[in-house]
Amino acid sequence: MARDKIYIEEEFPSPLRQLWSNFKQTNVAMLGFSGYLFLVVLAIFSPLLAPHSSVDSNLNLLLLPPAWDAQGDVSYLLGTDSLGRDMLSRLMHGASLTFGLSFVVVIISLVVGVLLGSLSALTKGVKSSIFNHFLDVILSIPTLLLAIIIVAILGPSLSNTLWAIVLSMIPQFIHITHNAIKEEFNKDYVLASRLDGADSLRILRYSVFPNIIEKIITQATLAQSAAILDIAALGFLGLGAQSPLPEWGAMLFNGLDLFYIAPWTVYLPGLAILFSVLSTNLVGEGLRHAIQQRKES
């Protein structure tokens, strides 16, 4: 319902809304965003959309090339793999594993990281210093190495790699929240509400969080592209998703033996990974660009 403007009043859009209106203006970012939305839809509805089963093998149709090949079959648009499974359905199902799970991973580590980061920003002195040193140590270990250690403790499986990636992503969210909150707390508007008698928690909730949420979202998109690559890399190394699951990295690894006979079993999952990482990165870049633009204006 349209809202009638009775009074002439100036409207101040919230930081998130401003971000969106800046974000909309960049074409490349919108392209990335539509790719991102496409992947989200695919990840949620892949069981309904997929033309064939992603795990049932069909021994009559082994290594069928994609439909544009002379020997291809149009009902198996992207061909089949070495067990006669439809590549298109597997890739679609893989979207919910590689892309969808990376989303879940980022959400979990974001929530934990932001909570711990706010806690650490509110504490001062020795406690905070020890905590920061501890974070520096964890940040200096590469995420993949950390994930490998955790997989070594828990054993290779998809859910274990997810926990491993969550754990290795948490420190960067703590770091960015901590720094952003510290920065905001030095600003005058925080001082103003402190003079009004607000306590730290209230300032955090009503003054600081609305202003730092854009930074956290930008970090989340960057973290998601890293998470997709990590899930796929661990799947490729055989430490993540196990064989019948159509996780893109694991699919790529399965196709490796037949790379020369059936190159599509390798390059298609690779392209899928590239596409999802690229659209996530474009969204992240667009967000970063929008934030910068708003700061300059």
């Binding site: 796929a232 890399a233 190159p263 390798v266 690779g270 690229l278 990165n281």
Partner: peptide, 18 residues
């Protein structure tokens, strides 16, 4: 830079080998 950052490293390796 953006495309190069998004290429999965194992895929790139396999491609260059090919």
């Amino acid at each position: 830079a953006i495309v190069g950052y998004s290429i999965p490293v194992f895929w790139l390796g396999l491609f260059l080998i090919l």
